[in-house]
Design a protein around this nucleic acid. Structure first.
Lengths: 211, 211
DNA sequence: GCAATGCTATAGTGATCACTACAAATCAAA
DNA sequence: TTTGATTTGTAGTGATCACTATAGCATTGC
């Protein structure tokens, strides 16, 4: 009867937190995230992960379920760490083209911040051979694309999708360029071009759409 | 004495052409090319290749050296088949922006021509996990980028690299979009935007650069 | 016919893949 | 101290990786 939910409330809290500390799951996710970001989902094996985390395979599976589960946690904190805080950049109070321009430039800075971890972890994950990993990354990628499209739609409802596609395509190209080793300066120049192009789209669209 | 170079000259020609037909190397390359294009270098194993070619592993290695060697042949004919005849599109007799616009649109058509073989085989190969395959693809990618930059430099010597980077980045984004399953119509819209953007770059650059 | 040539298929190489069965070890609660 | 729960390390699962040693076999020139 009272076997499960008996005793005091404090016990339940303690019971939830594992009687014997496993190995710091959170830190493990951070380490794995760097590995996945640096070399991609497929190229990082479980053996290398366990070596990097200082644990053995059974601990990894007990903690995260499987390799894809760990990757999911990595994606989660990668996005949550606000590496590219789209919600902070795409704010309703600033001009659309200025916000997009800022987004592109900040993306380049992020993609080229680390020499090892080049490009966008989500965008690169969408190209993984493993279908499960690809699906996980796609979820975040689609969410980001929807967010951008929704933001554009506020001021440009007629061609929001086309413009959002342009932005997303540019971001994917910038991520690929970063991964290929193109320098930050050159990518920033491209981002600036794309940003100033975006501004012209709004002008020309106003003319044609109002006609 | 007369054992080796005796007899008639016709024999030498026949002797060169393998006494027993191997298995049609050329056709094998074409089949392998489709597989590599469809699923990427890493995802296609030697076992699957030999199955698709109707041969056994030793024949593959005797014919192409190794998996990377076969991939190299595939890349070669992929590019040579003029899937995207840049030299036919980027001709000196047409306006720069028109040529670039055409290049982008034709690229989209190519990237979305087959439902299975999406994107650019070279651009996608540049992301392979295998360093050898990556290097092979990079060679073709760099050559294409240089060709584009050289073409732009003819009419825009000051900012050819920046503009070429923009075009290459857009192409990579389009390839990624095609691989992600984005429709031809949407990608064509993006290509058109990028093309019309490219034209504005020339105008604005003329003003600022001449000052 | 007879050896030489050259491609073929059978079978298997060690390495690595993601993943797990099992039992020792450690903790909490009784 | 005993019991029960849980994580740990050891060791190994079958599968697949790229690749190859060996030998059979068909065709060639003699």
């Amino acid at each position: 009867m009272k076997s499960k939910p008996s005793k005091s409330g404090a016990d339940e809290r303690v019971a939830e937190r594992s009687p014997r500390r496993p190995f710091d799951r959170e830190a493990g996710v951070a380490v794995a995230k760097d590995l996945f970001h640096e070399r991609g989902y497929d190229a990082v094996g479980v053996a290398e992960l366990t070596r990097a985390l200082g644990i053995n395979p059974p601990s990894l599976y007990a903690a995260y379920g499987n390799k894809a589960g760990l990757y999911e946690r990595c994606l989660e904190i990668y996005v949550a760490e606000a590496n590219l805080p789209a919600d902070k950049i795409l704010t309703p109070d600033r001009p659309l083209s200025e916000a997009i321009n800022d987004l592109l430039r900040q993306a380049v800075r992020l993609y080229t911040k680390s020499k090892a971890k080049r490009g966008c972890m989500v965008a690169e994950g969408m190209r993984a051979d493993d279908p499960q990993a690809r699906q996980l990354a796609n979820a975040y990628g689609d969410a980001a694309a929807d967010f951008i499209e929704g933001y554009i739609k506020r001021s440009q409802p007629h061609q929001a999708r086309k413009l959002a596609d342009y932005v997303v395509t540019t971001l994917q190209g910038l991520s690929a360029g970063a991964r290929a080793g193109r320098s930050r300066a050159r990518l920033l120049a491209v981002a600036e071009l794309a940003g100033q192009a975006f501004e012209t789209f709004l002008h020309t669209s106003d003319e044609s759409k109002n006609a």
